[in-house]
Design a protein around this nucleic acid. Structure first.
Lengths: 251, 251
DNA sequence: CGGGCCCTTGAATTCTCTCAAACAATGTGG
DNA sequence: CCACATTGTTTGAGAGAATTCAAGGGCCCG
């Protein structure tokens, strides 16, 4: 990472952060905005397929996603991969690495991504001087915990079809909150292998399950575009609560 | 919960908190101890089998476990239960309810438990006046996230035998850190149904898998006592990293 | 003694995986 | 423009894993 460039060279100074236009994100107070702007040390572009953080490293950076898709994962010795969650705009990356000693998972870009870079060392200043922001970070960690709880329930207790329906609804509505959908469609950068690795299913079985959902006209997925054709039926299949998304903070 | 009793009626005033004797827990600074003592509003005894917090409620309390075992879980409409994690001394309960609007999971006591009660409303004071403690809370949330990541990997990518071995090692070493083991034995208040609900396996299959581990002389489990007979073989089976536990904070 | 809870076992069924092969779409270099 | 490699999807078939259903046993407690 280059040393901090003058703020005016930033593509997205915090005052014009693209996330600020989305209803899903809670607006900053003025002094918080100033502090976050001061915390920011750079910007990062990652091409699809790039590893952004590696398990075992203790990254010097905290990142906030401004655009694009990524995912967090862990590998087993035998090469099996478990995708832990998909990462979307507003998500905060690297907290584990900043708080514990090292990252216990890796992060990879699914599409080209644009990210905001913060110095890990300054996290302490944030806790000391901006309890509201500290609270926001805890909010984010707590929300991620909630999501993981839901995924655990999904893997442990649902059948392959329900599990898949749940995942697609989950990803779609997260994308929707971020203005990345058009009607019932999203540009969807995952492959079936990613879905399989997220659900703990084999690729073959994932394929058959997806085709089964497509045959029943619940979804259509071609050319990197996912369409939810019958959201109610999907929600029903997956026991999905269609609760309204509340505003969330970001850093 | 009774209104705050005078501090001297406490069974465990914070200065004599039983957790302070355990190496696994990071000691407080003096002023932190004072503040936490002031934050504490009571104590709670829960009998085995009691529901301590219910999904959907927005509990007024934050709890720290002083002794005993419990678990967090979610239910599906069909009655299926996913146990998300086991709760042991030092664990902090109810953060989700305090930060988001309501709890998305329930908590039940596995054995008799003794807990420390904090007023949820005062959490904000903690963030405002004690950034070190705020950081500790984030640490705990972040650590729980890490554990959930590991469980997701466990459910998604390991076979029943490896999954079971992993869980037993996980629980045993957590109990060990808290001084609850004697040699290779723990008093283990879970039933096979709990293990099944934690691993996403049926009771019958869990039983067969446990018996298989017992037949291979890796474990012995009778009379609420679990013994790890061959920890190396278990670790090998489960791809277990026997990393030394680092000190953790508590509130 | 009866009821409840937990563990155990057998048998049949269903789900999911692995192996193997083929196909489509895309991009590259010759 | 074609041959070829690469990546992602699809299908069939057989094997293996895990589930369900059913029943019995042990133990504790009222």
């Amino acid at each position: 990472m280059a040393p901090r460039p003058p703020a005016h060279t930033r593509k997205y100074p915090c005052e014009r952060c693209p996330l600020r236009n989305l209803e899903i994100f809670r607006p900053f107070k003025r002094e918080e905005l100033e502090f976050v702007s001061h915390l920011k040390t750079g910007e990062l572009t990652a091409e699809a397929g790039t590893t952004i953080m590696a398990e075992g490293s203790h990254s010097a950076h905290l990142l906030t996603v401004l655009s694009g898709w990524g995912f967090r994962y862990k590998l087993l010795e035998n090469g099996n991969r478990q995708i832990l969650n998909v990462i979307l705009p507003g998500d905060f990356i690297g907290l584990q690495g900043a708080i514990m000693d090292e990252m216990q998972h890796s992060v990879e870009a699914l599409s080209d991504m644009f990210l905001c870079v913060f110095e890990r060392e300054r996290l302490w200043e944030l806790y000391r001087d901006h309890p509201g922001l500290a609270f926001d970070i805890t909010w984010l960690a707590s929300r991620e915990e909630q999501v993981l709880d839901e995924h655990l329930l999904n893997l442990g207790q649902r059948t392959a079809a329900a599990r898949t329906a749940f995942l697609l609804l989950f990803l779609f509505s997260r994308a929707q909150d971020r203005g990345m959908t058009r009607g019932a469609s999203v540009t969807f950068p995952l492959t079936q292998q990613h879905v399989a690795d997220m659900l703990g299913l084999s690729l073959v079985h994932t394929n058959r399950t997806l085709n089964q959902l497509a045959r029943k006209k619940l979804i259509a997925w071609q050319d990197r575009t996912l369409r939810l054709l019958d959201r109610d039926a999907l929600a029903d299949l997956a026991n999905w609560d269609d609760t309204v998304s509340v505003q969330r903070p970001y850093i």
